[in-house]
Design a protein around this nucleic acid. Structure first.
Lengths: 142, 142
DNA sequence: AGAGTATTCGCAAACGGTTGCAATAACGCC
DNA sequence: GGCGTTATTGCAACCGTTTGCGAATACTCT
């Protein structure tokens, strides 16, 4: 069990949630992949390891870990993907509409924009799950 | 038939699409409402006027008008709403997570942010349908 | 105006995702 | 370790949205 996984399990128990084999499995699958993973792939791998696994459990588990801050949700195309929250600091994402690549974006780049909205409109943007779509340098170069 | 509606019909034909009673109806319903309208309400009103109206037709029509630039899509909560594109100039939206109000945001406020992403990462953000969620001044005041 | 043709429609089935519920199982306590 | 409580699961039904398809119809051309 990796360090990240340990921490996630502790976060669970601290909030009074129970550690079930299904939750551990989902955690290991997402943590074992590289970067973000789509719900369908999490489900496919989980069902391989434990054939009774239900898609509803996968959704509930991913949402729970997201709520606990253990996982971060990224919108890729029109589907949600999940990754272990970067312990080295939260970051936002730039998602390319062409290649579907997801690039990290430091919160620092959004601070100015946030300040403008607050000052001008008194509008406090929710940047917890901010993702901006567009075209990355590789796909945009003609 | 209002001026906006006329223009929308012309946009349709210029692209080789046909003007059907269903499309005209959806156009008039969305144009007749104040601000944005949810799909379910468009469908409800359309079915009142024309009982054979199908929900699939409503979706297809709204998507078509969006593609033509006639309508603008706004994410309110987890549902999409539609409004006639503001002819006085495109704008983005700030949507309040509490009261679900949608406030216009001039593109000018995003220009700086856009320039930063392009310069720093070569990432060209898609601001065509940019909507930022958060808490508005009314709901945020304690 | 009437015929031909490609588009659009209504319907039904399918999709991804969510929810209600009875059965199961994780945990706290003795 | 076994018992009781309560959270969690698997299942099935459901939701909003999309898609495939044959029938209907808007438009073009004569």
């Amino acid at each position: 069990m990796t360090h990240n996984t340990q921490q996630a399990v502790e976060a669970l128990r601290e909030q009074g949630y129970r550690l079930t084999p299904q939750r551990l499995l989902v955690l290991q699958i997402v943590g074992g992949g590289e970067g973000h993973m789509g719900v369908d792939e999490v489900f496919r791998r989980a069902k391989e390891a434990y054939p009774y696994m239900d898609i509803a459990t996968v959704y509930r588990t991913l949402h729970l870990f997201k709520r606990l801050g253990v996982m971060t949700e990224v919108a890729i195309g029109d589907r949600l993907h999940y990754e272990l929250t970067d312990p080295a600091g939260r970051h936002h994402h730039m998602v390319c509409q062409v290649c579907h690549g997801a690039y990290n974006l430091s919160p620092h780049y959004l601070e100015e924009f946030r300040a403008t909205l607050v000052n001008e409109f008194g509008f406090e943007p929710d940047l917890e799950h901010f993702t901006i779509t567009g075209v990355c340098s590789g796909c945009g170069a003609e």
